[in-house]
């Protein structure tokens, strides 16, 4: 266990709320990262704005904490300018699915050589728990006091449909599985996308009867179904993007393809 070789320990304790799943996702990431033996000096972290985007400031490597939603665009430029760098992007559901939605699908479409971790807490945590593009239908937030009338994005399926090479989803109640898919993703090329549903007991949980971190984690665990199980049950993808009505959170590897990455395409055979 070498936690703090990867982190900037002078910044601990970090700013995340008690029980926040971002910390868990970060721990899983560092474990996968250490297991894969990636060189911190040849790694860069890029993030946008939001709680999860603050992770870039806690990782002891070159890190770019940028503007809201644009992390992927910054990362694209950085990766193309220095192709020896492993570029990791930490982002959240608001950053990636709402304000940065276009950059997200376009980067997937290009199959840009980036590793992206989206910490999905189903709301805008940094600004105090407003509805985001992944807030579940009918769930309460500070801007949907009567329940969310909109339907959420299924970010993992969106990434897969847009052409990302590797897409997987788990929750912060599945740390072992998260590490496994992260490690698998690190061995793929092109756009790698890991969506981690996490507990946000302080905002999302407070409005939705999941006040304690443990309650929130139990809710995540109970509502997760592995994609293979889903298929065995004969359910379609439409069933599971909407937790409130019928579905569950599909977890597992959503897509594992071998399409040429952007850099492979521009570099050609030479």
């Amino acid at each position: 266990m070498t936690h703090f070789k990867v982190y900037r320990e002078d910044r601990w304790p970090h700013m995340f709320c008690p029980g926040c799943g971002i910390g868990t996702t970060m721990s899983c990431f560092q474990r996968a990262f250490v297991n894969q033996g990636i060189d911190l000096d040849k790694t860069a972290f890029v993030s946008g704005i939001g709680c999860s985007s603050r992770v870039s400031g806690y990782v002891y490597a070159d890190s770019l904490h940028t503007t809201h939603g644009r992390g992927l665009a910054y990362a694209t430029g950085l990766k193309l300018a220095n192709r020896d760098l492993d570029v990791f992007v930490f982002t959240g559901d608001g950053d990636l699915g709402a304000i940065g939605g276009n950059h997200f699908i376009q980067a997937c479409r290009r199959n840009m050589d980036l590793f992206v971790i989206c910490v999905n807490n189903n709301n805008f945590g940094m600004t105090g728990g407003q509805a985001s593009s992944t807030t579940l239908h009918g769930y309460t937030t500070s801007t949907t006091p009567g329940g969310n009338p909109e339907y959420p994005f299924d970010l993992a399926r969106l990434a897969a449909a847009a052409g990302a090479n590797y897409v997987a989803r788990y929750t912060s109640a599945h740390p072992k599985q998260l590490i496994r898919v992260m490690e698998e993703g690190m061995n793929r090329k092109g756009f790698r996308f890991i969506e981690a549903w996490v507990a946000c007991p302080v905002y999302f949980g407070r409005y939705n009867k999941l006040k304690t971190p443990v309650e929130h984690l139990e809710w995540l665990k109970e509502n997760s179904v592995h994609i293979e199980q889903m298929k065995a049950d004969g359910r379609t993808s439409e069933d599971d993007i909407d937790l409130h009505v019928a579905g569950k959170i599909t977890v597992g590897v959503i897509r594992d393809a071998e399409r040429k990455s952007y850099i492979e395409s521009i570099e050609g055979d030479d």
Partner: peptide
Amino acid sequence: GTLIQMEDELSSIAAVIGASWGGAKS
């Protein structure tokens, strides 16, 4: 050098700044 046609102007300038941190004159 490297050229990329981005999806909009927001991402164009973002990529330019990112590339500069990667050491490019962008």
